[in-house]
């Protein structure tokens, strides 16, 4: 069985982004880019399923600019067998990505698609659910445990207040939460091997999808700054401030 793993190239999670002074967006020129952390977890999970013998092939997919190839190479260094880049310079919103992925799913016919639960740039948390809707497949979001057996996938999900477990008929969509696994470090030999793996490039036109954005961003602004706080000398001073100044206790 084949697994498709969509991966996104995003600003590295350690970078504190700055809003551009003209409020058109955040400044991501010359900023370190990496694979979205939740997608690393997705690639790792697919690779582990393959290592267990439950999966035959893992295909990584990325949608975006030419540099997304690097993200796909990272996925292949973790364990994906090959990569597909849907190359476009257009702004891609989750609905457009879901449509591109649906077209690829129709072509590649995987039984399982594993996505990250959200990308740390737009924080949308939509693409997996939208893909499931477009395909009419079942979904299990925010997965912290995934088991494949007998044409079904059993997933434990992180929900408010605890955990819940669902069983889905395959084919199905799973989105990863942080606790699903600890992605492996990519080793130099695996990076070298990944360079030889197959990487195909297609365009949204090839897939018959119009990726035009539906939401217009009018402006991007700085969040309201907190006014500078103070350091207090001891517990007595802290309690005094909380009682008499902030009046919160």
């Amino acid at each position: 069985m084949k697994v498709l793993v969509p991966v996104k190239r995003v600003v590295d999670y350690n970078v504190k982004v700055r809003v551009k002074s003209d409020q058109t967006g955040v400044d991501i020129a010359n900023v370190k880019m990496s694979m979205n952390p939740f997608d690393e977890i997705a690639v790792e999970e697919a690779t582990r399923l393959k290592e267990k013998g439950a999966v035959a092939e893992v295909v990584a997919v990325s949608c975006g600019v030419a540099q997304c190839q690097e993200t796909l190479r990272t996925a292949m260094a973790i364990g994906a067998d090959r990569g597909v880049l849907v190359q476009t310079d257009a702004e891609l919103q989750p609905l457009a990505v879901a449509k591109l992925l649906k077209a690829l799913v129709d072509k590649e016919k995987p039984q399982l698609v594993i996505l990250g639960k959200q990308a740390i740039d737009d924080d949308a948390n939509q693409t997996g659910q939208m893909l499931a809707a477009l395909l009419d497949w079942p979904q299990a979001t925010f997965a912290s445990k995934v088991e494949l057996a007998d044409g079904k996938v059993t997933v434990t999900r992180e929900v408010d207040g605890g955990l819940e477990t669902l069983t889905l008929k395959l084919p199905a969509i799973v989105t990863t939460d942080l606790r699903l696994n600890e992605p492996r470090y990519v080793t130099l030999p695996n990076i070298m091997k990944a360079k030889k793996k197959q990487l195909d490039t297609v365009t949204p036109q090839d897939l018959g999808v119009d990726p035009a954005p539906r939401l217009k961003t009018l402006k991007v602004s700085e969040p309201p700054a907190r006014k500078a706080g103070i350091k207090v000398a001891d517990v007595a001073a802290l309690v005094d401030k909380l009682k008499n100044e902030a009046k919160v206790v």
Binding site: V11, K16, V17, V19, V26, I120, D121, D122, D123, R214, L215, K216, T217, L218, K219, V220, S221, E222, P223
Partner: peptide
């Protein structure tokens, strides 16, 4: 909010 709350986007839907 986007980027972990480091920016606020104003978006319009048609």
């Amino acid at each position: 909010p986007i980027y972990a709350g480091n920016a606020i986007a104003t978006v319009q839907s048609a």
